[in-house]
Each structure stands twice: as structure tokens, then as C-alpha cells.
């Protein structure tokens, strides 16, 4: 039987108006894998995610579980791909109401929650640690709490593919570790696949199964994240040098420090 990847994308060109931001991007991602997308500011990381989730038209094709996203209705697409955007709006709605919105792709004109919706929302509340914030209004939350609520919305949508754009911005260290751990759990236990846009090279090396480095409007590297710790050329893109340390239990940890040359 032929193996169907979770995500298979070939983007020939994508951009805004006449300006092309990315060319010739080919990606594949299997079920249960986490792909980190890194690159310098303005290299097209967010543009890539916007294309993959259908917010931005592009030349080429993106398939989830073998189904081309361009053939799907907006609701069908929202049942396959969920995305956490960089700057979500904070209207005067409660966290509970926000999570209920996550179930709207599965309903027609009425979004009255059924048992499946309620179970998905409860799990999202636990996974995003939102128990104490359920009745709070989004516009009264701190930046970090509001993004946690949107992380809950992402999980409540129960899609096989999750896209996250700088999801750990505003997060304290404890929540950052908890969130990335939760994403790995979603991959491992639920078979979901994650595309994570991040500025943190440490996050990419520690949590990703695959790595994409964007530079100069195209893919500079696609493969295992360990390459970032070994390939001097890749490190030069970010003007960093990889440093290896060992924790108290003998496990290797990688850090990246600015390079002088």
C-alpha cells in the first residue's frame, strides 16, 4: 500500500500582490511529526503558514492526507487544518465561548454543541490549562493568557494538522515548556502533525522531528534538525554558533550563541 504523508506541499510561488516572497518550497510531513520552520525576520515563515492554511493563494498544491486543500470548501479545510496566528484579536467573548467557536467547522448554521464538541472542548481546556480562565473575557486577559486561550481554540478544532506561528511569544518559561510538551504529546498520542514557526533555534533542535530553514526566498535546508548543530553554513545564516552542554543526568542540550566573525 502506498504511504500517504500527512502534509505534502509544493509551493511554486507565493506572495502579496506582485511581490513574490517564497519560491519552490517542497515539504512533506508524516503523521505524528513536528516540523519546525526557522529563518530570519521577513524570510517568509508566516507567509508559508498562511499559504498552507488557505489564507493566502499560491501557485502549486498542498495536500493533507492525500486531499488537495484547494478542492475543499472553507469548512472542510477547517476540519483538516487549524492555525494559531501571530496576532489574534481579543473581542469581548469568554474563553469558553472562544473554544466553542473551534467546533464551528463541524456544524452548519447552528453551533449548538453536541457530546463530541463538549468532549473536545473539555480536553482542550485541560491541555491548555484553561480551567481557571474559562469564564474570563479575552479582552481582560494578559497577552500570555490570551494566547493560551487561542492555543485551546487550536486544539478544540481537533484537526490532523496544526500550524502555529510564533506560538510561544509572550509565554513564560513554564508555559512555553508545557505547551511544546503538549504539542509533542498531541503528535505522539493523537497522531497529529504540527508545523511550528519559531525564532528559537533551541526549540527547533529540541522538539522538532524535521526542520525547514528558509533563506533568500526559498528553502535552504529541509531535513533533520540535528543538521543545525553540525552545519556551519546553516549556523552562519543566523550568525550563531552551536554549543553543546550536558545536564546533570548526562543528556545533551544545545545552545546557540552569537558569533563574532
Amino acid at each position: 500500500m502506498m504511504h500517504t504523508p500527512r502534509l505534502q506541499a509544493h509551493i511554486r510561488a507565493v506572495g502579496y500582490g506582485k511581490k513574490t516572497v517564497l519560491r519552490d518550497v517542497e515539504l512533506t510531513l508524516d503523521a505524528g511529526e513536528l516540523l519546525a520552520v526557522i529563518g530570519k525576520n521577513g524570510c517568509g515563515k508566516s507567509t508559508l503558514l498562511a499559504a498552507l492554511c488557505g489564507l493566502l493563494p499560491f501557485e502549486g498544491e498542498a495536500c493533507v492526507d492525500g486531499v488537495s486543500l484547494s478542492t475543499l470548501t472553507p469548512r472542510e479545510r477547517a476540519q483538516r487544518v487549524a492555525m494559531m496566528i501571530q496576532q489574534p484579536r481579543l473581542p469581548h467573548v469568554t474563553v469558553d465561548e472562544l473554544l466553542r467557536f473551534g467546533r464551528s467547522p463541524y456544524h452548519g448554521l447552528s453551533t449548538h454543541p453536541n457530546d463530541t464538541d463538549r468532549a473536545a472542548i473539555e480536553e482542550a481546556v485541560r491541555s491548555a490549562s484553561l480551567e481557571s480562565l474559562r469564564a474570563s473575557y479575552l479582552d481582560r486577559l494578559s497577552g500570555g493568557e490570551a494566547r493560551r486561550a487561542y492555543f485551546g481554540l487550536l486544539l478544540a478544532q481537533t484537526t490532523p494538522l496544526l500550524l502555529l506561528d510564533e506560538a510561544t511569544a509572550f509565554a513564560d518559561t513554564a508555559w512555553e515548556c508545557r505547551m511544546l510538551g503538549e504539542l509533542k504529546r498531541q503528535c505522539r498520542e493523537r497522531g497529529r502533525s504540527v508545523v511550528l514557526v519559531t525564532h528559537s533555534l533551541e526549540q527547533a533542535v529540541t522538539y522538532a522531528d524535521r526542520l525547514v530553514v528558509l533563506d533568500g526566498g526559498t528553502v535552504r535546508y529541509f531535513g533533520t534538525p540535528q543538521a543545525l548543530t553540525q552545519d556551519e553554513e546553516l549556523q552562519r545564516i543566523f550568525s550563531v554558533r552551536a554549543l553543546r552542554a550536558t545536564d546533570g543526568e548526562g543528556r545533551a542540550q544545545w545552545f546557540f550563541s552569537p558569533r563574532e566573525d
Binding site: 488557505g54 479545510r77 492555525m83 484579536r89 473581542p91 467557536f101 464551528s104 448554521l109
Partner: peptide, 23 residues
């Protein structure tokens, strides 16, 4: 009123509403 639940999604902004399947 019939489209109410879909219109509600617009309060999240265009991008989030589209990501949730709203036209």
C-alpha cells in the same frame, strides 16, 4: 438570525474567522 452563528465568527477578525471555515 439564521446566519447568526456564522456571523458571530467575524468578531475574531477576518483571518481567524476564515481559519474556522467562515466565508
Amino acid at each position: 438570525a439564521v446566519l447568526g452563528d456564522r456571523i458571530d465568527l467575524l468578531c475574531l477578525g477576518d483571518a481567524s474567522a476564515r481559519l474556522l471555515g467562515a466565508r
